[in-house]
């Protein structure tokens, strides 16, 4: 190694000082390689999962036609008389997700607006962590909360409510995704430059007008992305819906009936004794693939919306 040379002037400059330093180069390479391996490993794992899903899904579709899968109104793969229509499961998932959205979108948005525009710094410092606790509650607890509290209340209000029903599951899944929606929406609202708020106040706007007519529209794409992410979480939710919504594939729009979601079916079938390689076993992967594609699409859409959002103001 060459000696570090001081400032120009006193010493004669040695051009070798500009040459590569061997040990430093080696360290750079090792660290670069390590980081590459880590990145490669997680990419490989993802690719591996998708490949396994794909392989079993392809064998599933060698015995069931895609048309049947998409149009048959019944899902009875584990019965004697087998039907492989994804519609009842997809409808179950969508009903739960839609109900959850009805609960979580307004609540999450209003919470975000309150936290970002109205709450004092102190109140915010208290409320935000409190809300995040909601996100930390194990989902199985939500499931039993639905079963032992929400469902009895629903049955008192609507006596026709079944013990397992989509409504109770929707409500708790909605509560579960409020933190996702409120905290991502709040980030988007707070990212709106305060100069826009000042501009509106300077025109004689009230706080409500500033919040709803300047800040919210400016943050809209970020807020919508938060909704989509929250709803895609609701579709992927497993434990609470398995416990509270039932295991009855049921093509219905009545939220008081027992249903089964795609995720709940996966739990049910993987806990049962479906022999490896059988068609029952392959349905797991076909349903998993469907779920994967739906949440992937929703994530892509929200990413697209978010990238537009980054250009929304200067």
């Amino acid at each position: 190694m060459s000696q570090p040379t001081g400032a120009a002037g006193s010493e004669v400059f040695d051009p070798a000082a500009l040459a590569h330093k061997r040990t430093r180069n080696l360290a750079e390479h090792v660290i670069g390689l390590l980081l590459f391996l880590c990145a490669a490993a997680s990419t490989l794992i993802t690719v591996g999962i998708v490949l396994v899903l794909l392989r079993e899904t392809i064998s599933f579709f060698s015995s069931v036609s895609l048309i049947d899968f998409l149009t048959d109104p019944q899902w009875t793969p584990l019965f004697q008389e087998k039907h492989f229509g994804i519609l009842p499961l997809a409808a179950g998932s969508f009903m739960v997700a839609a109900g959850a959205a009805v609960v979580a979108v307004p609540t999450g948005l209003l919470t975000a607006l309150f936290l970002s525009e109205y709450a004092s710094e102190r109140l915010r410092a208290f409320l935000k962590p409190t809300l995040e606790i909601l996100a930390g509650i194990p989902t199985v607890v939500y499931g039993y909360f639905a079963l032992t509290f929400v469902t009895p209340v629903l049955r008192a209000l609507f006596p026709s409510t079944e013990v397992y029903n989509a409504a109770a599951a929707s409500i708790v899944v909605g509560i579960m995704i409020i933190p996702t929606i409120s905290s991502l929406s709040e980030d988007a609202l707070r990212a709106v430059p305060s100069s826009l708020r000042e501009g509106a106040y300077g025109l004689g706007a009230t706080k409500l007008e500033v919040s709803t007519r300047v800040v919210l529209p400016a943050a809209l794409s970020g807020v919508i992305a938060a909704f989509i992410l929250g709803i895609s979480r609701a579709i992927g939710e497993t434990m609470a819906v398995t416990i509270a919504a039932g295991q009855m594939p049921n093509l219905t729009l009545n939220p008081l009936e027992s249903i089964e979601t795609m995720t709940a079916y996966i739990v049910q079938a993987s806990l049962g004794d479906t022999p490896h390689g059988s068609i029952g076993y392959q349905t797991l992967f076909a349903v998993g693939m469907t779920l994967f594609l739906i949440t992937l699409a929703m994530n892509i859409v929200s990413q697209l919306i978010l990238s537009r959002f980054r250009e929304a103001y200067q």
């Binding site: 430059p193 100069s195 826009l196 000042e198 501009g199 509106a200 106040y201 300077g202 025109l203 004689g204 300047v214 529209p217 400016a218 929304a312 103001y313």
Partner: peptide
């Protein structure tokens, strides 16, 4: 503020 308006240092049009 309706009667006494304000223009700021940095242009701040709404999006």
């Amino acid at each position: 503020r309706r009667r006494i308006g304000m223009v700021f240092q940095k242009p701040n049009p709404f999006p």
